[in-house]
Amino acid sequence: MRSAWCCSIGVALFTASVSLGAVSAPPFSFSLAADGVAGGGNVADFGTVVQTAPTEWLFQGSYHGNSGTALSWIYLVDPDPFVTGTFTVTNETTTTRDYVLDFVLPVSPALTASLLSGQVSGTLTDSDGSGSALLTSISGGFVYSALADDSIVQGLMANALQQVTSVNGTTSFSGGSFGFPVPVSGPSINSSIGIRFAFSLSAGDSASFSSVFVANPIPAPSVLVVGCLLGVGSRKRDTRVTDYADRFARRS
């Protein structure tokens, strides 16, 4: 009887794992505003998406929707949730442009409380050989903002100013981090996480950002209580087993 139960549980677990593997990609989306001109959509519609693990997807693509702006990306996401990857934007116009770029991922399941960590790093390049390139914050704000349910929960690179002063030159910048090595506490997250990039970029130049935003659930108190009870229960059982073993040893 017991073996039949084990078999049925095993079959159920196998079926669950197979169906998990076939889960469709989450609706990971982006929006790009270039000097207020908006564009964007579902990331999967502008490239490829590959499932790399039961809950992880790799998105690659490019976008030329806003006139004079070239955008390309490669992002690994997990609705469990994290968002991490790299994008490159090139301002192909003749004037400095303000960019606001959001990458947003629906979360599943919702997090009643969260632990957050994030980081950003990048490069700025004089792509047109003019001898200079400039990347700055917009009105001194964050270049990187971690979003939870469309609200900013953490920010990096406030008052940023990165510049290149040599022809065809490149500069690298480490934009800082939060929650490394110890994650910081965050809010409950019900619908989505994301990363917002907001910056001004000089004409003819390129910027590339690699970034991470991870939200880990904090176990709810009830889960902790259940965990404690399970721990106490197994300890008690271990003690009983030991007692039985002792008795058996004494008898023999």
């Binding site: 991490t84 960590s117 980081q119 950003v120 790093s121 040599s166 065809n168 690298s172 490394f180």
Partner: peptide, 15 residues
């Protein structure tokens, strides 16, 4: 790099 860590590789320029 530690899990989910980004390391800047720096930059080099020549002319």
């Amino acid at each position: 790099a530690q899990p989910f860590q980004i390391i800047s590789l720096g930059n080099a320029n020549f002319s």
